[in-house]
Design a binder for these strands. Structure first.
Lengths: 223, 223
DNA sequence: TAGAAAATATGAGATATCTCCTATTTTGAG
DNA sequence: CTCAAAATAGGAGATATCTCATATTTTCTA
């Protein structure tokens, strides 16, 4: 992890305005943190000292269960917050946050800014929107996971993450995200291949029947 | 559904202050709605005109999936909001809300109050807290549903809803809530009875081995 | 650059959960 | 009070998903 200093910091802050998020300036004590892929931004179980705002990159929220299973709760993208739960609640089980690409965040020391932020309608409005989307997403994922087999959820995930007709996510990550065993994920991927929805080439899968996948994934949706 | 008028309204509003929620008064256009058990407070798919604040009672959030399955997403209790998603987002698939006991809500016409509320730090802070809890809850339910079998989740649910050592929820509701089939719920309940965790008496189940259920439910928790 | 660790792959058997069916009991509206 | 609808109950077989075991390939690190 690198903390930008001096001109590197100044330049970065100038290029990435966050005026739209706050009524009063927060630059005084704000830091700029850069994390490399796989770095832990927050350790599971350890309260963070900062409220983060992701400017660049992508991260993952993990929780480890007592039975050893690991869940990838969700992805965090640019323009989203990290640590807002700890800002709002004194008691909270902190989830682990891991960068999945190089990730640059603004880091606001909660100590300094908590009081100010909790009075700032502009900030609270942003945070409210963010949390409402998060709550809705989780509710959808929850009900979908119970109402539909992996087949549908995987089709949806493939379409969401495929890049130029090519799907190439790591199986291990996908298992944690969709909450199924490695074995079963492979099994359904093989089915997709046998049905010619996908064509496997090394570690990549080429989408061959977009429509078939689309109709599997549409079943999840209440438009 | 009954809308309180005149003195009935005045009395109710006086007895249930909501000063702590708003910086400026909202009583002018506020209504008081009373719903009976099983009334629909909001129809699935139909945008509500009000932001509701539940003063008394308990309600259920439902969504119907394309495959016909119904999910009970969550319960709503006193001092919680309904319709906040529609307040925040112009495009949103509205879930159905059904009263599960007699429920009395304050109903704020969004049309009149949206702008004012979105500027009100006090209100936004409350809403933020509410949504953050909601998001956390959903995330936990989601990961738990994928990481643990019904046995653990049902044990937890029984302990949460049992009244004086007696569990007597409707099976149909529980199926929708825990996302399992009626058949399977009965199956696991029978197991609990055979293991003497519960003792069945008509439609009620008496908790006989509190500790066994407790340890099943503890497995879900990361303290 | 060798060896360890992580990721991929696949088989085989177990089990959690589902679907479909049928029967009985309870509840609620007229 | 009566009848239909809802809720409860349980059998039987299907299937979605899991666990465990083992082998190969890729990636990372000392």
């Amino acid at each position: 992890m690198e903390i930008y200093k001096a001109s590197k910091k100044r330049l970065f802050v100038e290029r990435h305005s966050i005026e739209h998020l706050f009524s009063a300036p927060v630059e005084a004590y704000m830091e700029v943190h850069e994390y490399q892929r796989d770095d832990w931004i927050i350790q599971e179980g350890t309260r963070p000292d900062f409220l983060y705002y992701v400017v660049e990159g992508k991260a993952k929220i993990y929780i480890t269960h007592q039975n050893g299973k690991v869940s990838l709760i969700n992805f965090i993208n640019a323009n989203e917050f990290i640590g807002e739960m700890e800002l709002l609640h004194d008691v909270y089980y902190t989830k682990g946050i891991q960068a999945s690409t190089k990730t640059i965040c603004f880091a606001l020391p909660m100590h300094y800014y908590r009081r100010q932020l909790m009075e700032d309608a502009k900030f609270l409005r942003e945070l409210t929107r963010f949390l409402s989307v998060k709550a809705t997403q989780m509710a959808m994922k929850y009900t979908q996971s119970l109402a539909f087999p992996l087949e549908n959820r995987l089709a949806d995930f493939i379409l969401q993450t495929a890049d130029n007709g090519v799907y190439k996510e790591k199986h291990v990550t996908v298992c944690d995200y969709l909450g199924v065993s490695y074995r079963h994920l492979l099994h359904v991927l093989t089915q997709f291949t046998e049905k010619q929805y996908l064509q496997k080439e090394g570690r990549k899968y080429h989408i061959k029947q977009y429509d078939s996948l689309k109709s599997l994934s549409q079943i999840l949706r209440n438009k």
